[in-house]
Amino acid sequence: MSPGSRPWSGVQRSMSNWAKIRVATVFLLPAVLSVILLRLWPALLAIHTSLLAPRAISYSLENYIYIFTDPVFLNSVRVTLVFALIVNPLQVAIALGLAILMNNKLPMTGLWRSAVLLPVAIPQSVSAVIWAAAYRPDGLFNSLLQAVGIGPQRFVTSPDQALASIILVVSWIGVGYWMTMLMAGLQDIPKSLYEAATIDGANAWQRFRYVTLPQLRRPLTFVLVADTVANFLVFAPVSILTKGGPQGSTDLIMNQIYTNAFVNGDPGSAAAATVVLILLVLAIVLVQFRLMSDRSER
């Protein structure tokens, strides 16, 4: 840029580096303060608390040793991993399917789109209460099942069905949001790529496999990672529908942390579990980024 070609450049040149840093600081301050106060400080506090055994005054790993020998916590890790292994691929697949469906010119697309997106706008606790009513022995689902000749199911009161019931609620809440992200991605794919593939002889599945999927890699990565993180932090539906039961079958780590901290009065173990959860999420997200990276971008 030639000097003086913008009214700005004169101002910029007359500003010393320090002045620039001061201006930048002022603009960044609200964000930086929020991150420190709302993210870093609580995180440090959690680490601090996790290293203090009950009534201890010096740091130790006692809380970590305790939770890793606690069958209740170990069960919650197992339940969380099973939950994550099912719910994440399931939600991404459903969101992708819905996005593709909505992206085609269906009649009344707007209506369907709003219907799928609506649960996102309902507070999770409210959704959970509504589903609790539907899951009741004399609730909506059992009357529907009865209508097609299937006997009453126990849903959230059965150790075999409770986790699946939670997965259903969480997915009902979440997929609309992820679908919206993927739809934006779909609309970014140039139409000519599909036409070229059609002429090259690709059928519908091959067009999906060789055009849609690779072109959706970025939004899919985002959705997979963000969805994974969100699902590790699921709490309200569990707390309202099952409180981690029956027999610990829905005892996700978040519920375990809450129980330890506010029911059992053991904040140290709760903080240790929190740190373990964060490390778990980080590890899984790292693996996801690795898997979703693309050679052609390097």
Binding site: P190, S192, L193, E195, A196, A197, T198, I199, D200, G201, A202, Y210, V211, P214, Q215, R217, D294, S296
Partner: peptide, 29 residues
């Protein structure tokens, strides 16, 4: 169907598959 017409088309935007190498692009069909 287009694939059964024995034609090939060159698009204004080229419509190359961005995630495939030149070799893969050319050999795709």
């Amino acid at each position: 169907a287009p694939k059964d017409r024995d034609i090939a088309m060159v698009f204004q935007s080229y419509a190359l598959y961005p995630h495939m190498t030149v070799e893969q692009n050319m050999g795709f069909s």
